[in-house]
Design a protein around this nucleic acid. Structure first.
Lengths: 211, 211
DNA sequence: ACAGTTGCCGAACGATTGTTCAGCAACTCA
DNA sequence: TGAGTTGCTGAACAATCGTTCGGCAACTGT
């Protein structure tokens, strides 16, 4: 019982150096970079991250309870990054160009997937062990919330009078999933063309769901 | 120099028991099963395979030079399996039902991907280190030859007079890649529906590329 | 029946993994 | 200035990995 109180107090205390939080994100960034280069949860080692940051392996445990927590942190950190670039791309297009906003979102998705093959692989490969999610939280894969933004973009298209060949949510899944699969094909065979081959495909896919 | 001769002679000698080859495929099957359940190259251990087969870890090395050779064997074995089920599905449909043959192929692909999550993950996650392929062999990802069968099916559609909204090869990529992506979404979030949610999506995707 | 070959096993080796712990150095507060 | 707290480190732990080696048992041809 006194243990809990002490732990809580320890966590609440601020770092007097003012560097602790910065090192945490530094670890997160380095781990993310290794993720991108190596790809795969097993390829990411505590020692490797520590070496990349320039600290001792034991220091990792001052910021993350264990390796699983570090991996969760990297995943969370990078999904926010992907969501951010898609949101920025969405907002960088004029409001009345509703289709252009869909295209901008998907192009941003492609760029991110090409530039971060490791994270991309993680998005697919994350097997979610039973009971990993918080209690009461409906279990959902990491792609689902991102898909939500695409659905919203298609609903804006419908409200702007654009004619779709199917309900907006279904169109969003169609485009998102097709883009996702095209990127998978690229990662399976990167030799023949990169983003310059992917983006036209995505554009044609988008035009396909409109009437 | 005499070493090479002796090794070659050893490899050429047939197994007098007549069981060696059978055990090899037994190892391959067990490794494939573990691949399906665990998913991921790193999760597949020599000791785990040996335990699954019921033999000593050292015995694996009588049939595979090292772990990389075992993994290559599993990949090859299972791609042939996937190609086989897609070919069987293709041939199980009447010749004049050209669109039905496309659907049968893609449905078989979905079933395989749902029933073998590990292999599916492998199809995506296989990072091909430089110089792994045989010399003179154009490097290509594992999805590419399978895609070829889909292209052929769409070319048959065109020859039968079906109108496509794009060149047959592009339509094949569109459908294949969209199906592939839909399966990825399923694996990312298996809770909401399985094959019964995937197959209608695939059917709609196929109908989308026809005029 | 006997020598020769072959496939499998038990045991071990070195390397690497995640993780823990005591101690040292740098900072804050009185 | 001195006590107290905090972050980081070096060293070590047990576990697990791929892999190797000598020996045993089952089969072959003669």
């Amino acid at each position: 019982m006194p243990d809990e109180v002490e732990v809580a107090a320890t966590q609440r205390v601020r770092n007097p150096w003012g560097q602790g939080e910065r090192l945490r994100t530094e670890i997160l960034d380095a781990a993310g970079r290794l993720f991108s280069e190596l790809g795969g949860e097993e390829a990411l080692t505590i020692r490797g991250v520590a070496r990349a940051v320039g600290i001792a392996p034991a220091s990792i445990y001052q910021h993350f309870a264990d390796k699983a927590a570090l991996v969760r942190g990297v995943i969370e950190h990078d999904y926010e990054r992907l969501s951010a670039v898609m949101r920025e791309a969405d907002e960088s297009v004029a409001d009345d160009d509703v289709v252009g906003r869909v295209r901008a979102q998907m192009h941003a998705y492609c760029r991110f997937a090409v530039e971060n093959p490791g994270h991309y692989r993680l998005m697919l490969g994350n097997r979610r062990p039973a009971g990993q999610g918080e209690a009461g939280q409906r279990p959902q894969g990491p792609l689902v919330p991102i898909l939500g933004a695409v659905v919203a973009a298609f609903e804006r298209c419908e409200q702007a009078g654009k004619r779709l060949r199917m309900p907006s949510e279904r169109a969003a899944v169609m485009v998102f999933v097709g883009t996702h699969g095209r990127v998978a094909l690229y990662h399976s065979n990167p030799e023949d063309g990169g983003a310059d081959r992917i983006l036209p495909f995505v554009d044609e896919l988008i035009s396909l769901v409109f009437d």
